[in-house]
């Protein structure tokens, strides 16, 4: 015998009040109605309660991408020799004091010439691992699954399906400024414009810009 069968009797009396043949059923239908009403009230209260709970829970998900991005000063142009690609760290514009080192984000700055730059995200376009620049072979290599990119960020080989993510940049009063703030992924590709359009925009430095938010202030 399984123990369950012995355990049925203690539970059985509980179901008896619901038995319509019970002689106590005089006020029964009224109490059933009241109970159903109470369920309804609870349902309504629950629905109202769900609004703040879901709002709280989904807050980070519903935020617009653009809201997290702001202009970040990466330093004076003199820091970036022409023809070189350098690792630059900046403090993410949105951080908390308990973020510790995780609020510091690196990126690869490639100064092609003059005011023409490419600023690559550190995250591999495959699955986000940190790519490393090798100046001698002019390649970015990813340690995770062997993705490789050329100097201009285009895909060279391996599992990535596209080139490196690029941040939008501007040159403002002799400093390089990028628009960043959110981890770049395939769903949030640092920027949407094609590189050529960007290069054109960058050369016109008169464009009215928000004052760069100095987060790293390396100089």
């Amino acid at each position: 015998m399984t123990p369950s069968e012995q355990q049925i009797p203690p539970g059985a009396p509980l179901t008896e009040p619901a038995n319509p043949e019970s002689h106590k059923s005089a006020g029964h239908s009224r109490r059933v109605f009241l109970f159903k009403l109470s369920l309804l009230v609870n349902g309504a209260v629950g629905a109202v309660l769900a609004v703040p709970i879901l709002g709280y829970l989904l807050g980070p998900a519903l935020k617009k991408t653009s809201a997290d991005n702001s202009w970040i000063n990466l330093g004076p142009l003199a820091d970036f020799p022409e023809g070189e690609t350098r690792l630059v760290n900046f403090r993410n514009p949105v951080t908390t004091s308990w973020d510790g080192q995780t609020g510091d984000i690196p990126c690869w700055v490639r100064r092609i010439s003059g005011n023409t730059f490419q600023v690559f995200a550190i995250n591999c376009a495959h699955l986000g691992c940190p790519v490393r620049w090798f100046a001698q072979s002019q390649l970015f290599m990813c340690p995770c699954h062997g993705g490789a990119y050329y100097a201009d960020g285009s895909r060279a080989s391996g599992p990535p399906e596209r080139g490196l993510f690029e941040y939008e940049y501007q040159v403002v009063s002799g400093s390089l400024v990028i628009s960043a703030g959110k981890m770049p992924t395939l769903a949030n590709q640092a920027k949407n414009e094609s590189p050529l359009v960007q290069l054109e925009g960058a050369t016109s430095t008169e464009a009215p810009l928000p004052k760069p938010r100095c987060s790293s202030c390396q100089s």
Binding site: P60, K63, D68, N92, V94, T95, T96, W98, D99, G100, T102, G103, I105, G181, K182, M183
Partner: peptide, 8 residues
């Protein structure tokens, strides 16, 4: 992530 980047 609970925010724009991997953090607190």
């Amino acid at each position: 992530l609970g925010g724009p980047i991997i953090a607190g």
